[in-house]
């Protein structure tokens, strides 16, 4: 019973985080802010949902599989965000201000 509550809360938190990530993706100004919104929330949200499911399932094999998926997500999700951001930087996308209009000044040494 207690565990049901824990897993329910985890699932809810995960769904909420996914929702905020999607909102950020739609509403944020420039590419890097958007990818930040998705990448950061996605990792935590998927972990929460997977943990919630882990508590729900009652046999060892699905639990083990969920753990493996969790490990995979923890590795692959930040890496894919990194790859996207890097590809965008190499393609010449530069950070912009809050409204997405003006390019921001870059730190010295960058171009």
């Amino acid at each position: 019973m207690m565990l049901d509550w824990v897993s329910g809360v985890l699932l809810l938190v995960g769904s909420f985080l996914l929702l905020t990530g999607a909102l950020g993706f739609l509403r944020f100004a420039d590419f890097y802010a958007r990818i930040h919104a998705c990448g950061v929330t996605e990792t935590l949200a998927t972990s929460c949902i997977l943990l919630g499911l882990l508590i729900q399932s009652d046999s060892a094999v699905p639990q083990f599989k969920l753990l493996l998926i969790l490990l995979f997500v923890l590795l692959s999700s930040p890496t894919s965000s990194h790859a996207l951001a890097k590809a965008a930087w190499n393609a010449g996308v530069r950070p912009r201000d809050n409204r997405g209009k003006q390019p921001l000044p870059l730190p010295p040494g960058e171009h």
Partner: peptide
């Protein structure tokens, strides 16, 4: 980073 991560996966 991609190389290291993919090499483990």
């Amino acid at each position: 980073i991609l190389q290291v991560v993919s090499k483990t996966m």
